[in-house]
Amino acid sequence: MRSPIPVMDCHGHIGVHPDFPAYQADVDAMVGVMDQLNIERLAVTSTLACYNDCPRGNAEIEAVLRRHPDRFFGYVTVNPNPPGQAMAELERWAAFHRPPLIKLHPGLHKYPVHGEHYKPIWDYANEHEAVVLVHTWDSDPNCGPLLFPPIAKAHPKARILLGHSGVTWRGIMQAMEAAEAAPNLFLDLASSQHHRLILEKCARRVGAERILFGSDMPFLEASMTLAHVLTARISDAEKEKILRTNFLTLVTG
């Protein structure tokens, strides 16, 4: 199984995970899988940063970008705590990309995405027209999709990707409702739950222009989301936008 068009993947990681064994998670193995499935380029965030240590985690991303500049994009992952660290990290790794790619994980960092400590990060994202990938989950008090329309409206130049689009059927309904409320909110397909009919519903309601392919590699298996997109009852033109054009447009400014 292989994508007929080269894929731009908006959601990946570098690292392992604490709660189950990682398989083939080293960078070379990931590139092998990307070659197999025809994923041209993968935007990665540090899993170490998501769980534990942003400065060390972002340094891991810098090393990957240096080694594989044509295969990866790098998110600067920031934690609202301790206050001040996030801004220092954004400045430190400003050379990753212009516009910057920023990853937020309010679920693991256990701080609400609309909380005070996130405010300077959102202001920075707005000022620099950043692409911000945020982990979301159905109704979560820290990162439920319905928390995002006010943030997006207050920071209209930030392009905000609702990571996993809320995951569950109800979470995706919330993500669609949020995306309808603000044009700078986008739906990321990375998920372990690929409900029947859901992609067609998202394309009808929000439009394929605001749906992005994300694999969550090497956390989740990229081929499942790829097969979901490629077998969905949407047009080939919509598939191409989802698999490639939309994210490419965002990262090139």
Partner: peptide
């Protein structure tokens, strides 16, 4: 997991497994 999930997801994984 029909009818909840699309079979594409588990079929894609099986098809791409080396």
């Amino acid at each position: 997991r029909l009818p909840l999930f699309t079979p594409a997801s588990s079929l894609g994984v099986l098809a791409s497994a080396r």
